[in-house]
Amino acid sequence: MQTPGPTSYQRARSVEAAIASLAEHGPGARVVAGGHSLIPMMKLRLASPELLIDINDLDELAYIRREAGLVRIGALTRHVDLLRSELLAELFPVFADAEQVIADPVVRNRGTIGGSLCQADPAEDLSGVCAALKADVVLQGPGGERVVNMSEFHVGPYMTAVQAAEILTEVRLAVRPGAGSAHEKLERRAGDFAIAASSVAVWIEGGTITDAGVALAAVGPVTIDARRAQEHLRGQVPSEALFEEAGRIAAEESMPMPDTRGPEDYKRHLVGVLTKRALRKATARALHQEA
């Protein structure tokens, strides 16, 4: 029987109160959102927080809204709400692609975007999605707010830029013209973490890719920002040959480890194939012709 070890529990009444409590109790205190990563880790004694600060009552952190060139997603927004959001489906369909294959609908009722990013599990799909979209995250601490780009957010396996007494409050996505995005994942069975996954975003203007994001999940110690593949795409006219080459480069940039989900060369091969497919789909979406 797996149960979490001894801990204390507190329910936060406001973001400020949660931050104050984190500051007061030091490194032994941990925020709990959906609990769908933290509670399993506590059962396995991979995490043994002395105090849990529950932020589930902070409705002010659960929203998806468009404001002045930005889409803002509150940290407590649950997977199910990301999946159902019409705004995201229209502007960033990569979310719906990913959410259909993240865990199962029951887990999706609880898990949150903030928890997914802060967990910093290299296999987390949303980390790839937000990295490909070049999202910013807002971190609030005792001294106020700061904004960190996804490219600097994951600093190591299960390690993020979130400092002591800080809380991730919001994910920000810039709305830019000509955007298309897609997520391709291969899993062993429905609801499992990825064997490999590729999240892609392209911005196309006048027939040319002006900017691109390619991020890989489950094929390295952290979510991999495939920078060389992005560089290769930038300034080019989309074509099958271009996607093929970008996939090949992304596969080179991946750092898969052999495990029960498959050997290294298989995962690397998958990265190439999934990236190519995601690029094809994202491009078709950018050009408003569904693949």
Partner: peptide, 15 residues
């Protein structure tokens, strides 16, 4: 009203 796996929530969170 939403389905949740009760082995993955603390009772305290549901008060």
């Amino acid at each position: 009203g939403r389905a949740v796996k009760s082995c993955t929530q603390l009772a305290a969170m549901v008060e």
